[in-house]
């Protein structure tokens, strides 16, 4: 299989799960229970991504403050909780991360 075919295959398997529900929208009605479950999609998926990228480092769970991703995420969460400001949360999280890397090494 050539690289070009590989890229084409990757395109298809990426596009199909994105498109299928869009193609069906309006043609099928989702049950009320499914609709209410879908409300939780952003929280469920984004939280799982956050936890995976933050705590799983080099193939194992690193639940300690010397994993600099953790203090960065916790400070961003605090800013987001108290100010509800997205740019503020990103800025503070990145500054905490940069400061730790510069002053604590790593």
């Amino acid at each position: 299989m050539s690289i070009e075919l590989l890229i084409l295959g990757m395109m298809l398997v990426t596009f199909i799960p994105r498109y299928l529900p869009f193609a069906l929208a309006g043609r099928i009605q989702l049950p009320a229970r499914v609709k209410s479950a879908l409300d939780f999609v952003p929280i469920a998926v984004l939280t799982a991504i956050i936890v995976q990228v933050t705590l799983v480092r080099n193939g194992s769970v690193e639940l300690s403050l010397s994993n600099f991703h953790l203090p960065a995420v916790l400070s961003a969460a605090a800013v987001a909780h108290f100010t509800r400001h997205l740019f503020g949360a990103i800025g503070v999280g990145l500054m905490v991360y940069a400061a730790l890397r510069i002053f604590m090494g790593g």
């Binding site: 939280t47 991703h69 960065a72 995420v73 800013v79 949360a89 999280g93």
Partner: peptide
């Protein structure tokens, strides 16, 4: 991740 935190929290 900090951007996603800002959205989810």
């Amino acid at each position: 991740v900090v951007a996603f935190v800002g959205i989810v929290v």
